[in-house]
Design a protein around this nucleic acid. Sequence first.
DNA 1: ACCGTTGTGAACATGAGTGTTCACCTGCTG
DNA 2: CAGCAGGTGAACACTCATGTTCACAACGGT
Lengths: 179, 179
Amino acid sequence: MSVHLLQTATSVLLKDPTASLGDVARAAGVGRTTLHKRFPTRSALVRAVASDALDLIESVSCHVDFSRDDAIEDLMTRLVALGPRVEFLLRFPGLERDEELAARIREMDRPVLDLITRLQGTKLRRDLPAWWILHTLYAGLFNAWEAISDGRLAPLDAPRFVLTTVFEGVSSAGAADRT
Amino acid sequence: MSVHLLQTATSVLLKDPTASLGDVARAAGVGRTTLHKRFPTRSALVRAVASDALDLIESVSCHVDFSRDDAIEDLMTRLVALGPRVEFLLRFPGLERDEELAARIREMDRPVLDLITRLQGTKLRRDLPAWWILHTLYAGLFNAWEAISDGRLAPLDAPRFVLTTVFEGVSSAGAADRT
DNA sequence: ACCGTTGTGAACATGAGTGTTCACCTGCTG
DNA sequence: CAGCAGGTGAACACTCATGTTCACAACGGT
């Protein structure tokens, strides 16, 4: 019930961040009054959607063994599968102005940043800052989600696309030692 | 005068897509009435800003020799320098619903897509679709712009970051043949 | 000095989103 | 059956962005 409401709100607000609460309620098949009862204000709804996305990420990242060297591959594969629910976090405008959410996001990034920094000793290049690599990973996720929702990319192809692109790049030089 | 107005509108609307016309006018140091006189409606302003960004891109891409093999590097380097004015195009929500703008964007993408397809015969990997490579390039630009506006990345470092990351990836395997 | 242009502030009407209340209905439980 | 929790639509007041009009000031050209 309530979870379906959040899912609907996510997709509606993601497609049009200026959508009215009436639009959200109608899309979810509930009355606007009911929506207001569960989320008193618009910002409360937005916060709930974002918080739900963060919960989703946490529930995924706690299954990842960050001590393994292929932790990034594992994490990315799992994140790709989450799709729009999480895309909301990176895309919804003005979300970063909520200090509580921003803090949770930073806290969520920390283990990944640590992992990247550690792997820069072995498999990751050292001439790029860890934060840049992190953002590159996110950008790859973002690309995949967008392509999937546009129908251009099959969900099952997505992890491979993201990982090969981010790790090996689009130059054919890197592709040689893989084929 | 009018160009400065568009620049201000770009940055204000980029920071907060829901900013009111009053906010834009105040940031530009002009009266709201004046803004209304130049751009009768809000959507007219948005379209003008987007159109300005497209003009900017066209003025850059006409200096690029698309027959050269390093055309992508050239194009990316020039695009990175444009910064927020163009970021608006990729970021402002609902922009793709304007069919005229969408058509101009597609038309703008076409020569780049052709270039990518051609280069997939030589320097670009063939196991990824051209559109994916294009979006990966855009994602790199996006990352750079965001990092620059956050103050984390020096504008002069940006082209190198984007190009090495997109072409060679973040894995240290590709970095070996460069160092 | 006159006049057209351009920008400005003030004021107003309008519409939409929002938050709230209320009366009513439904289904479940004791 | 009574009571209660949860959902619903209707109606309301309120706020705010928006678009419009108008009168006034500044400026440049004639």
